[in-house]
Amino acid sequence: MNIMQVVAFALVCSLLLTLLRQSSDAMALVLAVAASAVILTVIVRQLPPILTALQGLAARAGVEMFYLRTLLRVMAVAYVVDFGAHLCSDAGEGALAKNVRLAGKVLILAMAVPIIIAVADVVVGLLDQVIVQ
């Protein structure tokens, strides 16, 4: 992937979008979705080496794989939700965009609950040790 190619592609699509938006808002939304999806796909395909490096670092630091995987899932949800919500608001649907964001936040909270409970367990364990002493 060449960053110049990505930027040039985005500029060409923006130009086409300004043309389309004058005549047909629906087709402009479709083109915006298509262009954003393509750019995101190109980016995501570059990620595997970075993720492998992160996994190696986490293993060396003694972090459990479960926590790293949950963190990556949360990041993936955040990016997908941002992608959808921004496209909705660009099409003029602010209410839909807000609801998509809310759905993303609730999903992230649901995924983070085990980690919160684990942190609470650690804190309570430390407090127990302190109180016993």
Partner: peptide
Amino acid sequence: TVAGLIVVMYSIVELITDLFDAVRTMVQF
């Protein structure tokens, strides 16, 4: 307009499926 939208929907669905497949392989790490 509706006919054009339907024709374009096929391509869009393919693009979005590609994107979500890529994201899912990233998440499965």
